[in-house]
């Protein structure tokens, strides 16, 4: 019998197929990761124009300790999807401040075009409610965008 391949025969029995039996495990691992990290949105976003800032930083606080106050261009204030009047803000901030053990961050999501008197009014209300940490919600602005401006 003539020798094939000059007598050198492949001894390896390794399959040349991608093992598909572990595919499900990989998929489930990814699935569980996304399930755990998903946070369902509790409130609906108001349509505002976001101001942008270069010094924008992430809030390093739990979501439970962040309170969102929306200020629209016409001065309409929304907390938890509910329209509220200016003088109601402090009565909503105060219990949240105590509940969070003085860690509450107020994310002030104000429209870029809103007149400053509304922002000042809300900040006075926040102060009256006892909270001191305020974050002006902004979009991150890249330096390139700024130079074009």
């Amino acid at each position: 019998m003539p020798l094939r391949n000059g007598g050198f025969e492949r001894k390896s029995k390794a399959s040349d197929q991608i093992p598909s039996s572990s595919l499900a495990d990989i998929a489930f691992l990814l699935l569980i990761f996304f399930m755990v990290t998903t946070v369902f949105r509790q409130e609906r976003e108001r349509p505002i124009e976001w101001p942008s800032a270069e010094a924008t930083e992430q809030i390093d606080e739990n979501r439970q300790n962040i309170m969102y106050i929306w200020v629209e261009q016409d001065g309409g204030i929304f907390i938890n999807d509910q329209p509220v009047s200016m003088d109601q803000v402090s009565s909503l901030v105060a219990p949240a401040w105590i509940e969070s053990q003085r860690r509450l961050r107020i994310s002030l999501r104000a429209d870029a075009r809103a007149p400053y008197r509304f922002i000042d009014g809300v900040m006075e209300e926040i102060k009256a409610g006892g909270a001191i940490y305020v974050v002006f919600a902004t979009d991150l602005e890249r330096r390139m965008a700024r130079e074009r401006r």
Binding site: F34, V39, T56, Q58, I59, V134
Partner: peptide, 14 residues
Amino acid sequence: TVFPKDQGLQIVLP
């Protein structure tokens, strides 16, 4: 999945 957009300019009120 919606990634939370909790960012902005932080200040501390007196």
